[in-house]
């Protein structure tokens, strides 16, 4: 499976404090950026000793075909992709991105949208706000940040919400003030409202729990998971088929990346354990399941693994691949 990429140039960089920066990406001559649906992301091939393929939400209008914008938070203890996009990438640099995909599209028949963002989880809601404003669908956006000094995208959100939706920003170093309003917010939404949330896992869990307490059916509650807390990673060995070759997976790379480095093509979409596209059969060994896709019985069966995030609990791990 060949991966299609779009060559882009970094046309602008806008910092929001020391750890967040927005990158404006324009297509190189001869390339084109497709329009996309709200909530879409692109996978950026971050150059370096080993290419990282990191997903970033498109934080711009879905009709933006002249330039995309992504907003990157520096993950100090991450695997290096976001650090490189902060410390090494500058205006004029060239990058490869994969075409937009969407695992977080808004429900179009919704009467009203309740959007709840924590920190960098604001990024998918930029395209939401553009779309909902253009379509005249009512929405309210609740945005929690820990630092009020340089709130990412605030000016644009204020402009998008003026006359179209309601914007509430909660500045709290502990992140508690947004959590405190979830109950009253979810308790007073008119029929037909859908809630969408993106942010740290505890915040999204609080949204789900509050929604359940207020009688929201799960069909009205939508989550964009990102940056799953993967915990520490140890190197491990993996074998391709029962008699196949053995590969080493380093502590600083994913199983999927190790397979790709070895020339083994595995189909993928989200690269963060959410979508299920890279599901791979397991012939022996016990995976350390770190995804949000497999069901509990599937995990227990240990016959499949999501190589984009999961690792090895008890080896040798033998994959149904050649």
């Amino acid at each position: 499976m060949a991966v299609t990429t779009i060559p882009v140039t970094v046309a602008g960089v806008e910092p929001y404090g020391p750890d967040v920066r927005a990158l404006r990406l324009i297509p190189e001559p001869g390339a084109a950026l497709p329009a996309f649906s709200p909530g879409s992301h692109v996978i950026v091939h971050v150059p370096g000793e080993r290419v990282r393929r990191n997903p970033y939400s498109l934080a711009c209008a879905p009709s933006s075909t002249e330039a995309y914008r992504i907003v990157v938070r520096r993950i100090a203890d991450g695997r290096g992709g976001s650090r490189a996009l902060h410390d090494e990438v500058e205006v004029g640099d060239r990058l490869q991105i994969e075409p937009p995909r969407n695992l977080f599209a808004p429900v179009l028949p919704a009467r009203r949208h309740l959007l709840i963002a924590g920190g960098i989880g604001i990024t998918p809601f930029l395209s939401y706000a553009h779309q909902l404003r253009a379509a005249g669908v009512p929405f309210e956006l609740h945005y929690g940040v820990r630092d009020g000094a340089a709130i990412p995208l605030l000016d644009e959100l204020q402009r998008l919400c003026t006359g179209a939706g309601r914007l509430a920003v909660y500045v709290d170093p502990k992140g508690a003030s947004l959590l405190a309003v979830l109950e009253p917010i979810l308790g007073r939404q008119p029929l037909g409202t859908h809630v969408s949330t993106c942010g740290p896992a505890p915040m999204m869990e609080a949204v789900v729990a509050a929604a359940r307490r207020h009688g929201w059916p799960s069909s009205r509650v939508h989550l964009e998971r990102f940056q799953l807390d993967l915990g520490p990673a140890d190197p491990f060995a993996v074998r391709l088929g029962l008699d196949g070759r053995e590969l080493q997976v380093g502590a600083d790379e994913s199983l999927l990346e190790a397979l790709e480095s070895a020339g083994v093509q595995v189909s993928y979409l989200c690269r963060q354990g959410v979508c299920g596209e890279c599901r791979t059969g397991v012939l022996a060994g016990v995976p350390d399941h770190r995804d949000a896709y497999l069901t509990a019985p599937e995990r227990a069966a240990n016959t499949a693994v999501m190589p984009c995030v999961s690792r090895c609990a008890s080896g040798p791990l033998v994959l149904d691949l050649v």
């Binding site: 308790g187 029929l191 009688g215």
Partner: peptide
Amino acid sequence: RLSRASVGLR
């Protein structure tokens, strides 16, 4: 009644 109701109603 529905025009005045909130999410959570069955």
